[in-house]
Structure formats: structure tokens, C-alpha cells
């Protein structure tokens, strides 16, 4: 029986949330092909949260344990997954920092291509077919993967996690001999410690309308009130040195697809829209009622952000306390 491999992620011994999405996507593909799903996790010890992988759709969980697998080990992870990858009909990664590095390594080792940032997947005549945004989401490409193993990575926050009630039986996976050519020596906190914009289910972004860097405090307050929210920024303010590069949303920054995107004082240049237009719900707050951002926003407020945002923060705090 054909099988799909779902490559999960852990950090600090805890399974990352995106892993459930990877398993859910693999499950979706497996159900279409009549296949089973194996999840794989690489770590140096037990991983908290792997028990949830069965419910997310994994028939088996293959645990590759190695003393050097505390942090991401590019060559070690790639060697491990490639050592069994050829036996799978497809390998599903997340298009995260790790997945973007790891998937092409595994694909190259298996001698096949790699479809990145997949937002839709299925089968057609036995082959895996995927849809993926290209040109910063301005177009959607349909691709048929014809290799013996289809290697792909899914865009985070795109595949819904459900309840599949599979066994998720834990099995050890042997780590083959490998040469660690590149090593991750440490993981540092980012300069502006906060949730990453690509991962956060809610993103509150600010642009030039905030007038000066200190006013981002208003957005940080709103993000805190919303909970689980990251603060993003337009290119203009990142270029002006107000915010870190990592917070930039748009064509030359991050592409985000949160469930809620709040654009504050951002006019909505085409480059910015390219980075956030696939968000599920878009809110715009801008003083200029003609700002292009209102064309893509589900909900808009025309007004002075310095008045509107504090009120919104208060209202959200009140609602969430109920």
C-alpha cells in the first residue's frame, strides 16, 4: 500500500503547531490515493505533542533520535529522511524556515523536483497535482509531479487540521551515517522578540501613517489584546529603519496568510497587497477613503488611526474578557 511521509517540526522538544497541518495535508492526499500516512519527527529526545499526530491523521509516527538533533541539523535531517524517502509516494513538508531548507535537500538526494508553498493538492491519473502561488500570489500555478516520489511543502495556515482518529503508533527510525557540513550553532531571539508574521494567526501591520517608530506601540497593544498576534510592517517603514526586515509584509518581504490581517496606516501599494491578499479576513484602518487597501479589505474604518486603534484595542479587550 502506498504511503505518504509527513515531515513534522519540533523546537525545544515540543512539536510545532504547523506539524499538524503537514499531517492533515498528507492525510488529504493519502485519502485521495488510498494510502497511509507516516509522520516523521527528528529530535534528540522525547517530543511533547507527538501523541496528537494520530488524531491529526498519522497512522505511524517515525521518530529519528540523534544526539545532534536538538537544533535543526540540515545534513542530518536530510540524510535521515532521504534514507527512507524513496519508498514513499509523496513527502510533505511545511514551507517554514526549516522546510524551505530541508525539502530541496531531500528532493535533490532523491533526484526529483520540489514544489514549494503548496496551497492545494490532490491526485490526477495517479500523479500528485498541486496548486501553488507564484509571482507573489499574483498567479496560481498548477503542477503535476511525475517523479517516483512527489516532494512538496505546504504553506502554513492553509490546510485545516481535523480529527482523523488514526493510531499514530510511535516507531523508531534509524539515523544513517551523515556528514554535518553545516551546523546550527545556536538559536537567538530576534531583535524585536515577537511572534513571526508568517506563523501568527493574526497580523497587525503598520505603515507610514504611524508617522514615527514609537507609535508602533499602538499596534503592539492591539496585537496583545487580540492575542497570538504578530506586528508586521510595510516596506516603507522597514526601509526607513523603523522595524526589522523580518517584519516586512509584501512582495520583497514576507508573504502571510493569517486568519486576520489588520492594516493600519497602510495605503496598500501593489507590492504590499501581494504579500497579504490571501489572508482570510482583512481589516483596513486608514484616513484616506480612496486608499487602495480598502479595495481588498473585508472591513474598513475611515478615520484617524490615533483615535481608532486605541478604541479598537479597548473594544477587543472587552469582548475577549466576556
Amino acid at each position: 500500500m502506498a504511503a505518504i511521509l509527513a515531515v513534522t517540526e519540533q523546537r525545544g522538544g515540543s512539536l510545532r503547531k504547523v506539524s499538524l497541518e503537514v499531517v492533515a495535508a498528507a492525510r488529504q492526499l493519502a485519502d485521495a490515493m488510498g494510502a497511509t500516512v507516516d509522520a516523521v519527527v527528528c529530535s534528540s529526545g522525547p517530543v511533547e505533542g507527538v501523541a496528537a499526530l494520530g488524531n491529526a491523521g498519522a497512522d505511524q509516527v517515525r521518530h529519528a533520535s540523534h544526539e545532534t538533533f536538538t537544533l535543526y541539523n540540515p545534513d542530518g535531517f536530510a540524510a535521515t529522511i532521504a534514507s527512507v524517502g524513496g519508498g514513499y509516494a509523496a513527502i510533505v513538508f511545511a514551507a517554514t524556515a526549516m522546510g524551505r531548507d530541508l525539502a530541496p535537500r531531500v528532493a535533490a538526494k532523491l533526484g526529483v523536483g520540489c514544489a514549494t508553498d503548496v496551497t492545494g493538492l490532490g491526485t490526477e491519473g495517479g500523479a500528485v497535482v498541486v496548486t501553488r502561488p507564484v509571482y507573489a500570489g499574483k498567479a496560481i500555478q498548477q503542477v503535476r509531479l511525475t517523479g517516483a516520489t512527489a516532494v512538496l511543502s505546504i504553506r502554513p495556515n492553509t490546510f485545516a487540521t481535523g480529527s482523523a482518529a488514526k493510531a499514530g503508533t510511535l516507531q523508531p527510525l534509524a539515523v544513517p551515517a551523515f556528514t554535518a557540513r553545516v551546523t546550527v550553532t545556536a538559536v537567538k531571539a530576534p531583535a524585536q522578540a515577537s511572534l513571526d508574521v508568517t506563523e501568527a494567526p493574526i497580523v497587525v501591520s503598520g505603515g507610514r501613517g504611524l508617522r514615527e517608530p514609537a507609535n508602533f506601540k499602538l499596534l503592539e497593544d492591539l496585537a496583545a489584546a487580540l492575542g497570538n498576534a504578530a506586528v508586521g510592517a510595510s516596506r516603507a517603514v522597514v526601509d526607513a529603519g523603523w522595524r526589522e526586515h523580518g517584519a516586512q509584509v509584501g512582495q520583497t518581504g514576507k508573504t502571510v496568510a493569517p486568519s486576520l490581517y489588520v492594516a493600519v496606516g497602510i495605503s496598500g501599494a501593489i507590492q504590499h497587497l501581494a504579500g497579504m491578499r490571501t489572508s482570510k479576513v482583512i481589516v483596513a484602518i486608514n484616513k484616506d477613503k480612496d486608499a487602495p487597501i480598502f479595495k481588498v479589505a473585508d472591513y474598513g474604518i475611515v478615520g484617524d488611526l490615533f483615535e481608532v486603534v486605541p478604541r479598537l484595542t479597548a473594544e477587543v479587550t472587552k469582548l475577549r474578557a466576556e
Partner: peptide, 9 residues
């Protein structure tokens, strides 16, 4: 840059 952090390579 990784999600919520920076990897040193």
C-alpha cells in the same frame, strides 16, 4: 530568520 527566532549557522 526562523519563526520567532534567528538560527546561527
Amino acid at each position: 530568520e526562523i519563526e520567532g527566532g534567528v538560527e546561527v549557522l
